[in-house]
Amino acid sequence: MALTKLDQLYRAVILDHSKNPRRRGVLDKATTKIELKNPTCGDVIQVQLAVEDNIITDVRFDGSGCTISMSSASMMTEAILGKSVEDALMLADEFSGVVQGGEAEHKHELGDAMMLSGVSKFPARIKCATLSWKALEKALETDGTGVDGQLKHD
């Protein structure tokens, strides 16, 4: 049956991250907070970062969304913990390419997030995968002011 194709999208690792998300919750010592919405589907994500001396020393996410967006957020927190702001932004950019069928240079750093490369075969779901990473980019680029926003549909 055609659901076998779904395995490309929903690997065990992804389902595990969705059911047992890493670093979900509130970060008391956050230096940057952001909430990003995907207005077309109602997904909401909050990302909170503690940045000290340009290093991401802690991160939490919270929100509501589908398996893909929640597992991606969970994987994102694993990938960026301990990274410099520049490296985190580089990974976010690379991840955005991976879910659209691109190659990754830093597969090891992206870690479990590489499992989401199968999303590229499901164009309607790419934005689910990138929501948390876009939130991360926006939080870091606004230099800690963490304005709330919407996922742009470009």
Partner: peptide, 25 residues
């Protein structure tokens, strides 16, 4: 199971259903 995941899975079975807030937040 999130409705988006439901809609993607059903689409794999050829069944087109909508998922989301249906313009009724």
């Amino acid at each position: 199971v999130h409705p988006h995941d439901v809609a993607t899975a059903m689409d794999m079975e050829g069944v087109a259903v909508r998922a989301g807030h249906h313009c009724a937040q």
